[in-house]
Design a protein around this nucleic acid. Structure first.
Length: 377
RNA sequence: GGAAGGGUAGCGAAGUGGUCAAACGCGGCAGACUGUAAAUCUGUUCCUUCGGGUUCAAUGGUUCGACUCCAUUCCCUUCCA
C-alpha cells in the first residue's frame, strides 16, 4: 500500500502540525526524526537498539546499495527489510545527494539524460538516471522512494538554479513514469535554491505530479540559517496539507524545531550518529565534546534525566574512556543517546502542537541549548 | 679490560657549521561535522607581561656564529676478551 498521512492537530499560532503516517510497516506519529543508515545500517546500531530509542522510519541509500552489494542481491534476499532484518519503515534516498556530496569539486557531468560520475569505491564510470534510480529503489522495495533530483550548492546563481530546478522537475516526471511498485510510495523533491520564485514554481509543479509526499531538498548545503528557513517557507506554502512534508538532511536540534514550526513532518540527518562517532553528545544545555579533559573523572550521566540506555547505564568518564580509546562501544553509546535526544525532541514537539505552546518551547529550548551556561551552540 | 655506535621537545625520530625553537609521526589540548567516500577533517602543542627568554646528555673549548667541530665526564646499546 501507499503511505497515508493523517493530520490530527494544527498549532494555532504556527504552521506546526501533529499527525500520523501509516506505512506498510506500522503507523508512526509526526513530526518524526529518521536516523540515517546509508549502507543498510544505522552505523553501530542494531534494530533492537533503534526500536528502544523510539526511532521509526530509517533512511537508506540507493547509490550506496546500488554499488554495494547491488540491488539484485538485496532483491534476492527478499528486499531491503529482510536483507537487513529491519521491520520498521525504510525510506531510500535517490542518490541525487551523492552526486552533490561525493562528486563535489570533482568531475561530474550533469546532462538532461542523467549524471555521469565516478564510483567512490573503484573510480569506475557510472551513469545514474532518474529511471535507473527509481528502478533500483523499486527493487530495494523500501517503503518510500525518493525522486532523483539535483541538489545544487549554495550559493548558486539564479540562471543555474532555474535551469537545474526545471531539470529536476523533468526528472521527477520521468521517475514517476518509470515507477513500478505497488507497495512503495514515491516522494517528489522541491528544489529552487535560495530563490523564492523558483521554490514556489518547483513546489507547484511538483505537486501537480501528485506524489505520495513532498520533500524540500537543497537545504543545509552551507547557507546561513535564515536562508535555510526561508527556503522552507517558500516551499511549504504550496504543499498540500494531506501529504507528509519532509525536510531532507536536517538536522540540528534547533533546525528541527524551526522546521516543525514551518510545517515540516519528517526529518533525517547524519548529525546524531556522525558527531557521536566523533565524541560529541547533544544535551539540553548544548552540545558537549566527551573527549574534553574535564570529563576524565566526571562520573555523572550525560543527561541525568534522559531515558536512553546510555544515560541509564554509563557515566561520562567511562564513555570518554571508550571514545578516547577508540572503542566502538563508545560510538554506539553516544549514537544511542544522540538519536534518542532527537526522537525525544520530536515527541516534545508533538505535545507542543497539541498544547499550542511550541513557540514558548522553542524559546526555552534555545535559551538553554545555546545558553548562558558556558556551553557552545 | 678492548672495539663500535648512540644520547634531539611528553614519546619515537629527522637534522650533522648559519636560512633551527628545531621536519615528520605518535601522544596531549581544543574545534568542525545538517538527504554519511566521515572511528573523518582542522588548528594547536618549550616559556613568555608577545618585547623577548631558555633549549638539542653535562662541562669546557674552537668559531663572527655550534644540535652540528674538538676535549673531558656521565649514561645507553651491540660486539670481543
Amino acid at each position: 500500500m501507499k503511505i497515508k498521512y493523517e493530520l490530527l492537530n494544527n498549532d494555532t499560532k504556527t504552521k506546526a502540525r501533529y499527525g500520523l503516517i501509516h506505512t506498510n510497516h506500522g503507523t508512526y506519529e509526526t513530526p518524526i526524526f529518521m536516523p540515517v543508515g546509508t549502507q543498510a545500517t544505522v552505523k553501530t546500531l542494531c534494530k533492537e537498539e533503534l526500536k528502544e530509542i523510539g526511532s521509526g522510519i530509517i533512511l537508506s541509500n540507493t547509490y550506496h546499495l546500488w554499488l554495494r552489494p547491488g540491488e539484485d542481491i538485496i532483491s534476492r534476499a527478499g528486499g531491503l527489510h529482510k536483507f537487513m532484518n529491519y521491520d520498521g519503515p525504510i525510506l531510500t534516498d535517490s542518490g541525487g545527494f551523492q552526486v552533490f556530496s561525493l562528486a563535489k569539486n570533482k568531475k561530474k557531468d550533469i546532462t538532461e539524460e542523467g549524471v555521469h560520475f565516478k564510483s567512490h569505491i573503484d573510480g569506475s564510470n557510472l551513469f545514474l538516471t532518474p529511471e535507473l534510480s527509481i528502478q533500483i529503489q523499486n527493487k530495494l522495495d523500501s517503503d518510500i522512494a525518493m525522486s532523483f533530483d539535483e541538489c545544487i550548492p549554495y550559493p548558486a546563481d539564479y540562471d543555474y538554479a532555474k535551469e537545474s530546478t526545471e531539470r529536476t522537475l523533468r526528472w521527477a516526471k520521468r521517475g514517476k513514469d518509470a515507477f513500478d511498485n505497488e507497495n512503495q510510495s514515491l516522494f517528489g523533491i522541491v528544489q529552487g535554491g535560495e530563490y523564492e520564485d523558483l521554490r514556489k514554481y518547483s513546489a507547484i509543479e511538483t505537486v501537480k505530479m501528485n506524489f505520495d509526499g513532498y520533500s524540500i531538498g537543497g537545504t543545509s548545503v552551507g547557507e546561513d540559517k535564515e536562508t535555510m528557513y526561508k527556503m522552507i517557507d517558500y516551499a511549504v506554502e504550496y504543499l498540500p496539507t494531506d501529504k507528509p512534508r519532509y525536510l531532507m538532511g536536517v538536522g540540528d536540534p534547533i533546525d528541527i524545531i524551526e522546521g516543525v514550526i514551518r510545517g515540516i513532518d519528517m526529518f533525517d540527518c547524519v548529525l546524531p550518529t556522525r558527531i557521536a562517532r566523533h565524541g560529541n553528545a547533544f544535551t539540553r544545555n548544548g552540545k558537549i565534546n566527551i573527549k574534553n579533559n574535564k570529563y576524565k573523572d566526571d562520573f555523572t550521566k550525560i543527561e541525568p534525566d534522559c531515558d536512553c540506555y546510555t544515560c541509564k547505564n554509563y557515566t561520562k568518564a567511562y564513555i570518554r574512556h571508550l571514545i578516547v580509546s577508540n572503542e566502538s562501544l563508545g560510538q554506539r553509546l553516544l549514537s544511542i543517546h544522540n538519536i534518542r535526544f532527537l526522537t525525544k525532541l520530536t515527541e516534545d514537539l508533538r505535545e507542543c502542537v497539541k498544547n499550542n505552546n511550541i513557540l514558548e518551547y522553542k524559546e526555552e529550548f534555545i535559551r538553554k541549548y545555546s545558553g548562558d551556561n558556558g556551553n557552545k551552540n
